[in-house]
Nucleic acid binder design. Sequence first.
DNA 1: AGCACGCCGACT
DNA 2: GTCGGCGTGCTC
Length: 730
Amino acid sequence: MVIIRVALDVPIDRLFDYLAPDADTADIGRCVRVPFSSRQISGIIISVCETSSVPEGKLKYAGQIDRQTPPLPQPLLGLFEFCSRYYHHPIGQVVMNGLPVLLRKFKHTGKEQPPSWRLTDTGKSITLADLPIRAKAKRQLISLLSEHGIITAEICKAMSSHSRKLLHEFKDLGWVEQFTALPEKAVFSTASSPAPTAEQAQAISEILDRTGTFTPWLLNGITGSGKTEVYLQVTASLLAQQKQVLILVPEINLTPQLEAVFRKRFPGTTLVSLHSGLNNSERLQGWLQAQRGKAGIVLGTRLAIFTPMPELSLIIVDEEQDHSFKQQDGLRYSARDLAIYRARQANIPVILGSATPSLESYHQARTGRYRLLQLHSRAISQAALPTIRCIDLRVIPAQEGLSEPVLDALRHCLARKQQSLVFINRRGYSPVLLCKSCRWIATCKRCSSRLVVHLRDRQLRCHYCGDQQPVSPACPQCGDPDVLPFGHGTQRVEAALIRHFPEARILRVDRDSIRHKGAWQQMLDRIHRGEADILVGTQLLAKGHDFPNLALVCALNADASLYSTDFRAEEHLFAQLIQVAGRAGRANVPGSVLIQTEFPQHPLYQALIRQDYAAYAQAHLKERRSAGFPPFVYLAVLRAEAPVLTDALEFLRQAAALAAVTENYPHIQLFDPVPAHMTRLKGLERAQLLIQARSRRHLQTFLGDWHQRITALPVHSRIRWHLDVDPLTL
DNA sequence: AGCACGCCGACT
DNA sequence: GTCGGCGTGCTC
């Protein structure tokens, strides 16, 4: 009896067994259609065996197996398996989450790359002289074939139906044959690389010395130190050996930028770019190219970590500290952490690159689990680092969020026709609408958040659920017409700047201003053409774009995250400020950075002024150690949401009780269930329970057991819950 | 997650 | 008398 064990896209963490008399081990990793409780769905064959633990009467027969598409390779199945186990997510949903939509339906079988045509040896001996002069179409076809050697499926499709019929006629004559086009083996060609700096050269050779060996590298290089050049030259060396390289980038905004750099350097290599902007068939196409080993480079966002690559020899995770590598719903995986797993599995190096590594990664490097590579100097034209200065808001007041020194600096920049950037990480006009007489504050009905004033549209908007309503003309509580916007967002700062510098061309860049399709690219173009003097914007501006004429960066009200309840907020702020500061002073423009703060003595700003990541990280790691936070402990969060808060809390208490019953986990600490920080979100009340462990292994064994017990709990239909392993926010 | 089965309210 | 609401339970 042949039984296949199938992963199905259902929220049940188990494989389903089916009878499949015609299946064998070659079908592992293939897509199969199966009956599943009164419907047909498709799944992936994970294993083939002789017996099943399921009572024989319950076993059904599997349907058709998709043998057109190459099966998922074993290492990818292993990655899925690990991912399911580590993040406690149903295996079938892990597998299906990682595959292109078109592949999981296997509807594309008919559309499978149709074969191309070429002349057989017999065909090659046919000349035009052998054909009647009247047979125009035949002669045309033969000359086409002998000229190009091949008629690709695309060309074939474009030909007349008569020509297509002739092709088949030729086939019967033995003149032509069909073959699946293995697109011409990539001719390795590389645009010339600039000579690396001594530091870069050192890093490149160290990495290349350990190809073919699992080696996690932490490449810590200041902005402009040329991390990308290291990626490029290591990649070049591996491509020359016909190997594949996987590059993960934080988000779609950055993809085109890095993609362009790699395409330019490797014009002869097929580069597949995988990001959310692709449609299903583009995604499938790229995925298949990677899977067949045809794509030398795969560049993509976190989902790309699940791309099968038979010749994979290096993984690069750029901006590894970026939170977008962690998925925040459904399967809550960290692509960066999976990259480490995948590199170990494939026995290859992995480069985590960043100017400000996550403390987790930095700690690993300090303790020798990762190897540290540092780039200390700017590679580009020996440009000096920007000078960073704090402006003490306790001494120097700010009007409309802008202090006099900031205005002065902006004025100077304008006079010298240089660009400046005003960074304020808060969009909208003002974050609060306040009634002066009764202290009423506009809040969201569905969330525990304050509504943000968007003066331009005269709307109050919730930045969490998107709800909006018109700005009320008077206080709904006391009727006083004196309701005022309080605090500053990008729109308000923009308005203030327009008043101060009516002659300047001011460009606001935030999620609202680039909402329309193509607006972001348009703005980038304008900035590059020098059609903007002052940029006002959020972190959108901080990320990875070179503004060649930018000389000044001013950061307004950054303090907000300094004394936050989120223990990662500070680390995040430091990275963000280093990033935005790095925008200033590229090429031959010296840069300066002004930071408005009420806490200029704070160690974060002190380290920032010296641009000393290592000092900051080491000091902060000490704090983490004494406070008992990661990377010195390992965390998981059980979250629950329900229409009524007490229900969510009660569910978490029940779950906690399940853990206490066992008492077998001395290294595990469960905290009390508490309401989440944003307690109410989109009309649901949320609560959470923190689990802390001394080691990953302890956490994993506990969670495996506990998760099963929670799943077995009688379901209260109102409650939705999930487990978040290695959460980024608490 | 779907989907069927099942047991109670307002309608042709 | 039925149509249909969504609670509960199962899926190889």
